[in-house]
Design a protein around this nucleic acid. Structure first.
Lengths: 291, 291
DNA sequence: GTCCATTGTTTCTTATATAGAACAAAGACT
DNA sequence: AGTCTTTGTTCTATATAAGAAACAATGGAC
């Protein structure tokens, strides 16, 4: 089946009723076209076109072959169109791996809006804290907080979110309110995973401090919950703890300082993405930045 | 439409569920296959296959594209089969240009037999003495007596037919019976077209004599008719004058001598012939030799 | 009849794609 | 866990095909 392309060329020649005309239409030198049709005829073992220097006519075999080829080429065009529709008209199942708390707090309203915008898309979300294996698992996209370690993957930045320090009033009453970053060394600092340093800025200065904690956690929600239970100080994105701030369960610590901003990324295994994924990422990039 | 071939390759990969397997099946290095599929994906703008080093799975787009491609490839195979059927199962219209008298006398019975052998073939014969232009006229084959002058055409020898000299008894009574070839110089020698020499053999010797005639003709039948009307001596194939010999209208002249044998050829514009033409020529070659 | 414009084919240089081996990754077997 | 085998990708010399111009042939215009 090495002559599929030549079939398309043959169709063009028949349509144009001329080698040169077809060559111009395709944008190919007529010499190549002539050679290709000849090669096709040789492969098939019989002549498709009666050539005169002045005009060409189909042989009986050519007539039959043309009918077939036309259908094939039309089919191919259809396939192409259908696929480019997939590229432009987002539809299908969007499988995404999302971080639990960030998604619940920040992305939920955006996803609702996006779902309204593209009724053709069905969503299959896996909310998990682990860094899923995009190569082996059939996710279209993964949203992650922080930098991706695997260089094979394509990461697109979505938003950079500032973080601040929070603790419960009761904790601060008990353990004392830190006045400067260095004071944190004497506090229970609840970080994600095994983070052992926190970087703080106050607009002009940056300081890096070692933190200690009795907890190693991979859940933002759990960290916040522990904070509301007076277990320590957390460095957290604003919206995550908004409710707890409003209700007084938590309050800002070292309000002149802010933590290192965390970046949210959309990660994919390839750049060749269907429209649903492309639009999803684009939508998040446009709307997450304003949060 | 430059990716038709790649579509076929893609189908093979999906069918084999493996690059290597497909490559082996096609007989192509897997490196090429890998590159070609990648190129196809790049052209389409989205990924068709999820690759793991261990197995490959179709993406949503790939699934859709595969369905289409499979149909296209199947269509192409069908077209190929239909055409190869034309190559093996003779059918359709066989358009042939034939010399009038040779066909009526020598070929008629063979054609009848051939027609019985291949019921699928319909015949469109143009009996004419002119050397038709095979390039411009849609003849599948032309049968000609003598050597073809155009080197572009493909000539296949069919038969070599001996010729003898004949005249009517009354002509011989009137003009005298030639005893040796040289005597022909004093006779009315009716040749085809403007033949001005006849070559004669008697088994051991060959002699070439100039002939003169008041007639320039392009019809064998007419020459024979003139001969029966006592107009001169003709050099003719045996069967053409069989009836005239049997009825005594003509009789052999210089019976030790025979004329230069004439060869019948099948002439085609190309070697890429459909089965009907191939079989026709083969049949004539096999049966005309025995006449 | 002669010249001109157009068309399909051929030729020759240059560019592109291919084949084969090396490579990296990952499952399977011990 | 370590090794082996299998699989997809990458690299580079080589073969194949493309492109531009020349060519041959044909039909029309004058």
């Amino acid at each position: 089946m090495k002559f599929l392309n030549d079939m398309a060329l043959f169709v063009e020649v028949v349509k144009a009723k001329s080698f040169r005309g077809a060559a111009d239409a395709i944008g190919m030198p007529n010499s190549t076209l002539s050679r290709r049709i000849s090669a096709l005829e040789k492969t098939l073992g019989l002549r498709l076109l009666h050539r005169t220097t002045r005009k060409i006519t189909l042989t009986e075999a050519g007539q039959i072959y043309y009918e077939r080829c036309k259908r094939i080429v039309d089919e191919a065009k259809l396939a192409q169109e259908q696929l480019s529709e997939m590229l432009t008209q987002p539809s299908g199942v969007l499988r995404a791996s999302l971080p639990v708390d960030f998604t619940v707090t920040y992305m939920a309203p955006l996803i609702a809006e996006f779902a309204k915008l593209y009724p053709g898309i069905v969503f299959d979300f896996d909310l998990t804290s682990r860094w899923v294996d995009l190569v082996n698992e059939p996710f279209d996209v993964a949203i992650r907080i922080g930098k991706p370690e695997n260089s094979q993957l394509i990461a697109r930045p979505l938003a950079v979110l500032p973080t601040y320090l929070y603790a419960s009033p009761r904790y601060l009453d008990r353990s004392g309110e830190p006045a400067k970053p260095a004071d944190l060394a004497n506090h229970e600092c609840l970080g994600i995973m095994k983070a052992d340093t926190w970087t703080l800025h106050n607009g002009t200065n940056t300081t890096k401090i070692s933190i200690g904690s009795r907890f190693t956690l991979n859940s933002v929600g759990m960290i916040c919950r522990l904070a509301t239970l007076d277990m320590g100080i957390i460095m957290m994105m604003e919206k995550i703890v908004a409710d707890d701030i409003a209700s007084g369960r938590l309050r800002r610590v070292l309000p002149q300082w802010r933590g290192a901003p965390v970046s949210a990324c959309a990660i994919t295994a390839t750049r060749l993405l269907p429209a649903k994924t492309q639009h999803f990422i684009k939508f998040l990039q446009e709307h997450l930045g304003k949060v």
